Every structure is written in C-alpha cells, then in structure tokens.
Simulated assay, not measured.
Amino acid sequence: MSEQDTGGPPSFDDPFEGEDVEQRIYGTLLQTREPTGVTAIAEQSGCDPKTARKYLEWFTDLGIATRHDGRPVTYERNDAYFEWRRVNGLATTNSLEELRSRIADLTERIDSYQQEYHADHPNEVDALRVDGDIDTVYADLSDWATALRDRRLHERAQQKLADTGGRASP
C-alpha cells in the first residue's frame, strides 16, 4: 500500500501526481522564491512550455504571479497577493474583538521574546552567542518572527474591519 493510500503525504518522487496541469503549474509557482523561466516551470510541472506560459499569463492577470520582462521572461509568486488573501480571510472570519484578542496574545509573546533575548527583533540575535540549547534558540527565533508577521497581518485585518464598520466582504 502506498503512502497516499494510507492518507500520508504524497511521494517526493512526484508531488503533483494526479493533479491537472493547472494545479501542477500553480503548485510549482507557489514554490518559486525567485524569478523562474517558463521552461523551468514547465519542466517542474511536467507540461509543455506553451501550456505553462498560458497559465502563467493567466495567473499574472489574476495577481497570483508577477511577470518579469527580459530574456527570458520569468515569473514568480506574488507574495503581496497571498498576504492580501490572508488579511482578507482574517477579516472575514473574525470579529474585531477576536482580532484584538489575538493581537494582544501575539504582542505578549513578542514582548516575552524581546525580554528574554534583549533585542527588539529576532534578526538582532546571534543564535550562536546565546547560552542554551541551539535548537531551542532557533525555534524561539523562528516563532518570534512568525509572531511578528502574524501580528502585522492581524493588525491589517483589524484595520480593514474597523474601516468597514466591523463587516468585511468575502
């Protein structure tokens, strides 16, 4: 029985097995962290470059991808789009009170890390110079950075709700 049959994660050999070409290209695009050529995206997605280009242009029109003109033309995920989606999702699924409560919790967690590591931001901490278990320090710094990002997103969602009188449209 394969891992997929047991409900486990997909095989690393073919993570897009069973998905249609649009889903494969979208999945590949989500994994890009720098501008990537159509040919490379097509190869990773297992499709023809012409097909990849068609979907990449469509994703660009939707705001999901960013196109960089040049030779060759390259594409990458548009992080601003995904951040907007996250903020919109928070604003539509939470009340102002819930957002305020979550912001307060995140602020408390951030303040705790700032006091523990005597720094305003995790980037200011040299993990190799901190006394303690290095794995714990790295986990703390990662959690701290996540808390900072999450607080910023929740604050944006709170502002969105406040600007609309407490109601956000989906």
Results as ranks from 00 to 15, higher is better:
residue 89 G to C: 02
residue 166 G to D: 08
residue 51 T to K: 09
residue 138 Y to A: 00
residue 96 L to V: 13
residue 115 Q to L: 13
residue 72 P to V: 04
residue 49 P to A: 06
residue 154 H to R: 13
residue 48 D to E: 14
residue 27 G to R: 08
residue 27 G to Y: 09
residue 14 D to F: 10
residue 7 G to T: 03
residue 118 H to I: 07
residue 2 S to C: 12
residue 153 L to W: 07
residue 1 M to Y: 10
residue 120 D to H: 08
residue 153 L to P: 00
residue 169 S to H: 12
residue 57 E to C: 09
residue 60 T to N: 04
residue 9 P to H: 12
residue 148 L to S: 02
residue 123 N to S: 13
residue 43 E to Y: 09
residue 117 Y to L: 09
residue 84 W to E: 13
residue 111 D to W: 01
residue 39 T to I: 10
residue 129 R to T: 05
residue 38 V to H: 03
residue 47 C to I: 01
residue 105 D to I: 02
residue 105 D to A: 10
residue 151 R to N: 08
residue 91 A to I: 02
residue 147 A to S: 14
residue 37 G to W: 04
residue 56 L to I: 05
residue 106 L to E: 09
residue 128 L to N: 14
residue 129 R to H: 08
residue 145 A to T: 00
residue 131 D to R: 07
residue 8 G to S: 09
residue 119 A to T: 04
residue 98 E to V: 01
residue 133 D to C: 04
residue 50 K to H: 11
residue 138 Y to G: 00
residue 33 R to D: 11
residue 30 L to A: 02
residue 149 R to L: 15
residue 32 T to D: 09
residue 63 G to H: 05
residue 132 G to A: 01
residue 159 Q to R: 14
residue 83 E to Q: 13
residue 100 R to Q: 14
residue 97 E to I: 04
residue 118 H to E: 15
residue 84 W to G: 02
residue 90 L to F: 15
residue 10 P to V: 04
residue 159 Q to I: 02
residue 140 D to A: 09
residue 11 S to I: 05
residue 6 T to Y: 11
residue 133 D to W: 06
residue 165 G to I: 06
residue 57 E to R: 14
residue 72 P to D: 06
residue 115 Q to P: 00
